[in-house]
Design a protein around this nucleic acid. Structure first.
Lengths: 201, 201
DNA sequence: AAAATCAGCGTACACTTGTAAGCTTAAATA
DNA sequence: TATTTAAGCTTACAAGTGTACGCTGATTTT
């Protein structure tokens, strides 16, 4: 890759990083401004357009990156499970770690899931579907469930975990631990209900 | 009440109504402006301060109203159930009706639950807790569950329904019907798991 | 070596925003 | 009836926004 293209990619990265770094509990993507992001990335506002046609385009890129991060996380979770951990215990622990270490990434997904841009919403929805699809496959193989039932179960499980993550954002460590306990109980509730359903059919 | 106080309350209402009417799939509360809201309410921007010190104060008022609307809905649901309907069937149906008729009210709660204002987040959280508390009581009485287990179950049920509501916002009627079916299955999953748990203890 | 490309810059413009200051006028109070 | 109160107004300002336009200079291509 030429010197020029290399520099361009570097600046593009700086823009993405600047945008992520400006996200916080008090600042959502929609409240970022093109000018502020450009400032932090060290370029003139008008140069922004050399990289993205729009703040929206930047945002969609960020959602994709966030989804990627999440999928890498799942791979990590599967490894830990394969080397002999409880599925529920491991999943919840890993997810909570993710939220602690990448809270702004999670916040992006959380907020844009119900945000004002249909494109964002469907991007987050797609990521969520990936998540559910992989978990369904796993449940299918592990429990011999029908794929249809597995999807319903997986969807419920993901919903509960995702929701717990959202709740965790505003809690201190003590309360988070309580939340984790409660979440695991809820997941077991769903798993038990699903097993019972399968035994019947 | 004097003529003056009456007029004041009328204007206050006009502001709240204007704000609600400006919410939409493409416009969140944080993207409303004091000036636009005032314009639609038919007063000068600076007169806004005679009623609220801040857009935030308006927003919190709106969240409270939304919570009230939701609790009225629950009362209605309980009536239908008392006159002999299935709990799950009735609840989901009523909730989906709510989302269809008050989508902007629901959107407010949905978005501010993970928004940029801690005050908003905890206001929505409180409304949610009310919701869960009332359902827990019901489950306790209906199934003789321990209050602790009932809360965990209720929390899971509310999470699933609320989430389904969020998903419904972007779907057409056909897809919504499918979603409703899936949601009911998930609720039954949780209910079954909970019953099994209770039988043991 | 000459020509073309293009990332980044500076200037500029038209808007929108929140809100301060002070006035008006009808209702409430004394 | 005289005085006070306060909802709503007009004017004004500083700050921030997105983006059009045209230039520069290094890199790439011919």
């Amino acid at each position: 890759m030429g010197v020029r293209a290399q520099q361009k990619q570097k600046t593009r990265r700086a823009l993405i990083d600047a945008a992520f770094s400006q996200l916080s509990a008090d600042k959502s993507f929609s409240s970022l401004s093109l000018r502020e992001v450009s400032r932090e990335a060290g370029i003139a506002p008008t140069s922004f357009y050399r990289h993205f046609s729009d703040m929206n385009e930047l945002g969609l890129t960020m959602v994709d990156e966030a989804g990627l991060t999440l999928r890498q996380l799942m791979r990590q979770a599967r490894e830990r499970i394969a080397s002999g951990g409880s599925v529920i215990q491991t999943s919840v622990t890993i997810f909570m770690e993710f939220i602690e270490n990448n809270s702004n990434v999670f916040r992006l997904l959380l907020r844009e899931r119900s945000g004002t841009s249909a494109a964002f919403r469907s991007a987050v929805y797609r990521e969520n579907q990936h998540f559910i699809a992989e978990l369904s496959d796993y449940l299918c193989r592990a429990n011999g469930t029908s794929l249809e039932n597995a999807r319903i179960e997986a969807d419920a499980l993901v919903t509960i975990v995702f929701n717990a993550g959202a709740e965790a954002l505003d809690l201190n460590n003590e309360k988070r631990a309580e939340l984790a306990v409660r979440t695991k109980k809820q997941l077991r509730l769903v798993a038990k209900g699903a097993m019972q359903l399968n035994r019947k059919s």
